[in-house]
């Protein structure tokens, strides 16, 4: 049952590093994170890798597997050819700390720049009434496990350090969309801000982010495109924008 697996693992730190070849046993049903752990326990005790849940729920084990941004705990070894060498490298869009671990603080800074949810001032605990259909749109975005794979794959920042300052990235576009579609949020102008302050305009809808999302969130179709369309709408017809904001809250409180 066990098979020999050839891995090529990037090892190093912010100063330098390179790929190292290694052979390790892999058992039936194992995922890439399992074999990384075996390498760690038996051959490279100090191999750095992030993980938590090993169940695709926390978004910690993000890395690039054969160049594709993926969760190591949700990638089956069996999905590769028998004699294929699997190459493991750290996320390219973020600075390396060590081996497969990168500095993802960029994302936490961006989270801080998105204005928080604002509840209606008169909302008392237990009094909110919302229909399932109305919460579902935002719920889709709240499935996000913050693995930042979409951030890593987005070409706007992947090899363009200079764009990071003005571009929040797909993870935070869905955060803005989530708040914008939240039946109770009272803050206005979220879409305009997405365009003007968070770089929505730099996105040219390549959909790469949607393709890598392990939660299958339809980032482009359900968040980015609707926001872009509405921004255009609003720019030409302020009265309609006002109407939509008001309608959003009809019959909710």
């Amino acid at each position: 049952m066990a098979r020999k697996l050839n891995l090529r693992i990037w090892r190093g730190n912010s100063v330098d590093g390179g790929l190292q070849n290694i052979t390790v046993d892999a058992n039936e049903g194992e995922v890439v994170l399992d074999v990384i752990h075996r390498v760690q326990a038996e051959q490279m005790n100090d191999l750095a890798v992030r993980w938590n849940c090993k169940a695709g729920k926390c978004g910690s084990c993000s890395m690039e597997i054969n160049g594709k941004p993926r969760l190591a705990c949700m990638t089956q070894v069996a999905s590769f050819e028998e004699d294929e060498t699997i190459t493991l490298t750290p996320l390219r869009a973020f600075p390396v700390i060590k081996d497969l671990v990168t500095d993802v603080s960029f994302n936490y800074k961006k989270a801080m720049e998105i204005p928080a949810y604002e509840a209606p001032a008169n909302l008392k605990p237990g009094e909110a009434r919302m229909q399932q259909v109305d919460v579902e749109r935002s719920q889709e975005f709240r499935k996000c496990i913050e693995c930042f794979l979409c951030q890593d794959t987005c070409h706007v920042i992947r090899d363009h350090e200079e764009n990071k300052k003005s571009f929040a990235g797909p993870r935070f576009f869905i955060r803005i969309a989530e708040l914008d579609m939240h039946p109770l949020d009272t803050l206005r102008n979220r879409k305009q801000k997405a365009q003007e302050e968070h770089g929505l305009g730099m996105c040219n809808i390549t959909k790469c982010c949607t393709e890598v999302c392990p939660e299958h969130i339809r980032i482009t179709d359900n968040a980015i495109i609707p926001m872009k369309e509405r921004v255009v709408d609003v720019k030409y017809d302020p009265a309609r924008w006002l109407g939509s904001k008001i309608r959003k809250r009809d019959g909710i409180l």
């Binding site: 928080a116 009434r129 399932q132």
Partner: peptide, 19 residues
Amino acid sequence: WELEVWGALFDRTEEGKIS
């Protein structure tokens, strides 16, 4: 309920309460 005031979106009942 306090979580809801902070933005949580729980699944709903027919009446629109937290399911």
